[in-house]
C-alpha cells in the first residue's frame, strides 16, 4: 500500500494530533517504508498460533476495591495547567 499525506492526516486526527501539511508530507514516505517492512510478517504461517499479548499471561488479578487517600488534593492538582483549587479546568466542551 502507499500512504499519502491525507492518510497520515486522517490517522493523526484519530490520535489527536494535528500535523502541518509539510509534516504530513515528511511522515508519509517514512511511515510507508516502516509499514512495508512490517508487512514481512505476512510470510509467517500463524494459522494455528494463539496470540501472545504479554509475557505474563495471567496477570488479571483482583483486589478489594477500596478507596485509599494517599495524596492530598493539592498534590494531585499541583501539576495541572489550570485548576480552581478544587477541579481541573478545561476549555468549553459543548
Amino acid at each position: 500500500m502507499t500512504m499519502t499525506a491525507d492518510d497520515v492526516a486522517r490517522i493523526a486526527h484519530l490520535a489527536r494530533l494535528e500535523l502541518t501539511p509539510e509534516k504530513a508530507a515528511l511522515f508519509a514516505p517514512q511511515l510507508d517504508q516502516v509499514l512495508a517492512y512490517m508487512d514481512t510478517l505476512g510470510q509467517v504461517d500463524t494459522s494455528a498460533v494463539e496470540p501472545l499479548y504479554s509475557p505474563v499471561e495471567h496477570a488479571a488479578l483482583t483486589r478489594p476495591d477500596e478507596a485509599r487517600r494517599e495524596y492530598s488534593r493539592d498534590e494531585v492538582l499541583a501539576n495541572a495547567p489550570e485548576t480552581d483549587g478544587q477541579f481541573f479546568i478545561v476549555p468549553k466542551i459543548v
Binding site: 512490517m38 510478517l41 498460533v49 501472545l52 499479548y53
Partner: peptide, 14 residues
Amino acid sequence: AYYKKAAQVRRLIR
C-alpha cells in the same frame, strides 16, 4: 493484519 498477527509471531519468537 498487524497487531494480532504480531502477537502470534511473538509467541513463535518466544
